[in-house]
Design a protein around this nucleic acid. Sequence first.
DNA 1: CGTCTTTGACCAGCGC
DNA 2: GCGCTGGTCAAAGACG
Length: 171
Amino acid sequence: MMGVTRQNKTERVIILVESEKDHPEDGFRWRKYGMKNLKGNTNPRKYYRCTYTGCKVKKHVQRSADDVKLVVATYNGLHEHVPPPERIIKSGTNNKFGSSMSQSGRTPFSLSGSQIFPSPLAPQLDMTEYYIAGLSVLPILPVNKNHGVMNRDDEPKIDRVIPTVQRSSRG
DNA sequence: CGTCTTTGACCAGCGC
DNA sequence: GCGCTGGTCAAAGACG
């Protein structure tokens, strides 16, 4: 059936990203399955589901009512897999893992271009790093304000904010 | 032809 | 018990 379950026990990761796109790339493949206009936010919330076979990870993306440039991506669950290589390759052909890392050599963490996902069987890994790795390479900012995001079930675990601003040229 | 996006309707949980 | 809100499903259309 619908299966409308309040997953307040599921691993939840909330990431704030400054992006002009409603759905910033994170390395995984997502399929949109719904959209809803929520109260208190003029921007609609979009629901995505991981299309990876067997993966039940879901996420909803919503623009902050305070900053339209701020995209709040809430991940429900953990990926028990790694982003499909094809995805990485395709993305890398442009400016994702491939060029961005190979040329700049800068990595978000201790990850290397060939070891971005060291263990595909490590669901306990901090998936946030994966998300961020796929999103962009930027410093982490402390989250002081909740932007009024999710206050219904419990306190969400906002791991970090990722302002994807073009700061590379600014220096 | 296959995949993905869009959109409306339905159902469940919570508050009053 | 009723109403509101949030979350998900399913069908149709568009694109590669």
